[in-house]
Nucleic acid binder design. Structure first.
Length: 781
DNA sequence: CCAGTTTTTACTGGG
DNA sequence: TAAAAACTGG
């Protein structure tokens, strides 16, 4: 009798789940069931090997994946799993820093900044240093700094190599590092670097966590960068012969490595076998997702890469439909084609959520959104401009940040004159200068300059009012709840009124977003007591602190704790900016970039904008290794499709409002023709139908298309909340449960995926065999 | 010296 | 197209 946790798994999958080997490398092709293996493995450890969840650390690459993994584990085990650490490298690092800020010399109220903040800060620093932005583009400086950090190099510790610009870059890096240190700012790369330094410089902390985490599991291993790899390596203890090392399982696919640009190194896959001895390699090559045609196309494309470990996916499902290729006149025509196909699919009974449009860069979504709106097809854009990245949200958060930490110069600058209150560039410049000279933050510079009588009475009064306003908020925080404070901020600062007086569509959506932030923070506040109880740091906390956190009362938080809620919320906002839309259950067509499609699958996939320069992107076309990464991205895109794949490209495309001519992507030519079917203009009422020759002289029609109605795009944020309690409605379906189905009779649940309305269960029926069913429709008893 | 207006520049990707 | 930079009237 097969163990329920192994049921329905093929031999290598089973091996991966139940193996007792110390170090395991799972090479898992696209659609080969790797997430399932990870989930079952963890469940196996807990259930069969009686491993405490406290001893397990699982690292994923997105917050979404982390969330889904814990949900699936809980559902499989049919119980909440407490104490296990599941998260992204960044999230885990953040958690470590929040716990051990004292030991590593961070201020307690350190702030995580995102790349926009980082860029702004760098611009300012360069200006102060008198470095010309034209000669040394900020983007270059930024990537220099981040790459250095990704490789574990501090400003004083950089190998001197090639680049001419290095001297300047390094000088900026040094200055940047100092300013961050002084104002308690931590960028994304810094999170990882600091977390790594905890291991290196604090042996007792390392020992503590080594003792705790006996099982390390890493997903998307091909996307780890140097620091992340080193972090796992050190934590595992594999290089400390005297130590008992942790069991390490890493899962990856060299063909799906698409984050080289942020320091990921595919070579870590090979390095794992060298560093973690003895290592068992398990290959998952059977694809359960796509048709034979789609898989063949994917294999053909990726076959053009040279640097591969070598792996060929196969499937025993049928050939399936041919891949459709559409040549459009323009981006608008392309969008027309896609949306019409989608309409047809929906009319034929497909669900909208089974359809995805994937593209290389976010800007491409606009045209497609426009057509979708016209056709009244509900859709959702993943990623893109994420909720917490929106200007109005960042403004509101900047106020909160300033309330939380007066030294937060970035926040100060953002809101000191927003909405306009008579404090202009000159004034701010004076403040900056003063702050720099006296080595203090802008906030205190403002206080001190007031005494110096540097400003006109009018300006001075504005500053005083501003300072008082923030202080007043801060004071209020002791008495009112966080969301109430936010409303107070909206009103008192005039932030909301500022948008309200603009009558256009955009301003209205901004107000909606501000309201949405209010809801988000309210809910975060409500859930906080529970978060505290579930606090995964518990074992890391000092006894005294622990006692204090247990004093939380039912009727809400003690006022003094509000500040901690604020701290947590701010950290949450910076790190987890994309969850909002993904939590929605509504049946929507999915729009996203190829990067964010990784790990997902859809019945119908449209790859839009298959053009040279766009995909492969012009920035990546010249260097072989970059081109190979683009090709892997293409491979990722193709392998998202289960049933039918559509490729499209346009002869012209508007870039920055200017029309440019395009040629088809080389990747299309890399797919053998036998798998492709060229589609002629089957539909296009808006265009001249007879124009089916694909010559490049026929654009005028397309470019005449109306550009109107941009304001109409659905950009508002869905109102539903994150952190839905999955167990509420899904607890009745768990692995091993015996169920009755009207048609198929009796069977046992062997696997589940999704949740809510999308919950699907795999049931092994006595008569009918194994089947996947949508729980909502199946009516299982 | 500020606030509102016009011109210029720049879009890969994401935690 | 949209955000940032440069410009200009009060």
């Amino acid at each position: 009798m097969t163990h329920p946790l192994l049921f329905g798994l093929n031999p290598p999958q089973q091996q991966a789940v139940e193996s007792n080997d110390k170090n395991i490398l799972v090479l898992a092709g696209a659609g080969s069931g790797k997430t399932r293996v990870l989930v079952h493995r963890i469940a196996w450890l807990i259930q069969e090997k009686q491993v405490s969840p406290y001893a397990i650390l699982a690292v994923t690459f997105t917050n979404k994946a982390a969330k889904e993994m814990s949900q699936r584990i809980e559902r499989i085990l049919n119980m909440p799993v407490r104490g296990m650490w599941v998260g992204t490298f960044h999230g885990l690092a953040h958690r470590l820093l929040r716990t051990h800020w004292h030991e590593i010399g961070l201020p307690e109220n350190f702030q995580v900044i995102d790349s926009d903040d980082q860029k702004r800060l760098l611009k300012r620093i360069m200006k102060e240093m008198g470095i010309d932005e034209k000669e040394y583009p900020v983007n270059d400086v930024q990537s220099f700094i981040n790459h250095s950090k990704d490789n574990g190099q501090r400003s004083n510790n950089i190998e001197t190599l090639y680049a001419v610009n290095q001297k300047h870059h390094q000088a900026i890096y040094t200055e940047y590092e100092q300013i961050c240190r002084r104002s308690g700012l931590v960028d994304f790369a810094e999170l990882l670097l600091r977390a790594h330094e905890i291991w290196l410089n604090h042996p007792h902390l390392l020992a503590h966590y080594q003792q705790r985490f006996r099982y390390l599991l890493v997903d998307e291993f091909q996307d780890t960068n140097t620091i992340q790899y080193a972090w796992i390596n050190v934590l595992s203890g594999v290089n400390q012969p005297e130590k008992e090392t942790a069991d390490v399982m890493v899962v990856g696919d060299d063909d799906q490595s698409i984050y080289g640009w942020r320091g990921a190194k595919i070579e870590h896959i090979q390095q794992f076998a060298r560093d973690f001895k003895p290592a068992t390699t398990i290959r998952l090559e059977q694809n359960y997702r796509s048709t034979g045609t789609i898989l063949s196309a994917a294999n053909a494309v990726i076959g053009h890469n040279n640097e591969r470990l070598g792996k060929t996916l196969w499937t025993d499902s049928g050939k399936g439909e041919s891949i459709l290729v559409y040549q459009a006149y323009s981006g608008y025509d392309e969008a027309d084609y896609i949306v019409n196909k989608i309409t047809t699919l929906i009319e034929e009974g497909s669900k909208r959520e089974d359809i995805a449009v994937l593209y290389r860069s976010n800007a491409q979504s606009r045209v497609i959104e426009e057509k979708l709106v016209q056709s009244a097809i509900p859709y959702r854009v993943y990623g893109g401009l994420r909720f917490f990245d929106r200007a109005e949200i960042r403004d509101a958060l900047a106020y909160l940040r300033l309330i939380y930490a007066r030294d937060d110069d970035a926040a100060f600058e953002r809101v000191i004159n927003l909405p306009a209150r008579g404090i202009g560039q000159k004034t701010i410049e004076k403040l900056r200068l003063f702050a720099k000279e006296t080595q203090q933050s802008l906030w205190f510079a403002a206080i001190n300059t007031l005494q110096e009588k540097m400003f006109s009475p009018k300006v001075a009064q504005s500053i005083v009012d501003f300072l008082h306003m923030i202080d007043h908020f801060s004071h209020q925080l002791k008495e009112i709840k966080l969301h109430e404070l936010l409303e107070e901020v909206y009103q008192t600062t005039g932030l909301k009124a500022y948008y309200e007086k603009e009558k256009n569509e955009k301003a209205r959506s901004r107000i909606e977003n501000l309201d949405e932030l209010f809801n988000a923070i309210k809910q975060f506040n409500d859930e906080f007591p529970e978060l505290l109880n579930e606090d995964l740091f518990e074992s890391e906390k000092l006894e005294s602190e622990k006692l204090e956190s247990e004093k939380v009362e039912d009727d809400g938080l003690k006022p003094a704790e509000q500040i901690h809620v604020l701290a947590d919320f701010l950290g949450h906002a910076v790190l987890e900016s994309s969850e909002k839309q993904a939590e929605e259950w509504d049946d929507c067509v999915q729009l996203m970039t190829l990067h964010s499609a990784k790990g997902l699958e859809f019945q119908y996939v449209f790859l839009a904008g298959m053009e040279q320069g766009l995909f492969p992107h012009r920035m990546s076309a010249e260097l072989d290794d970059k081109l190979e990464e683009e090709r892997r991205l293409c491979y990722v895109g193709i392998t998202r499709a289960m049933k039918q794949l559509y490729l499209s490209f346009a002869d012209t495309r508007n870039i920055h409002g200017r029309m440019e001519y395009c040629r088809p992507s080389q990747f299309i030519k890399e797919i053998p023709e036998q798998f492709l079917t060229q589609v002629r203009t089957t539909y296009s009422p808006a265009y001249n139908k007879s124009n089916s020759s694909f010559s490049q002289s026929n654009y005028s029609q397309a470019s005449r298309q109306s550009y109107s109605d941009y304001g109409n795009r659905s950009s508002s944020i869905p109102a539903k909340r994150a952190n839905k309690k999955i167990l509420e409605q899904d607890e009745e379906y768990y692995c091993g449960k015996v169920v009755q189905h009207k048609k198929f009779g009796e069977g046992v649940i062997t696997d589940t995926e999704g949740s809510g309305n999308k919950l699907r269960v795999q049931v092994n029926f006595k008569q009918a065999g194994s089947r996947w069913l949508l729980a909502k429709v199946a009516n299982l008893d």
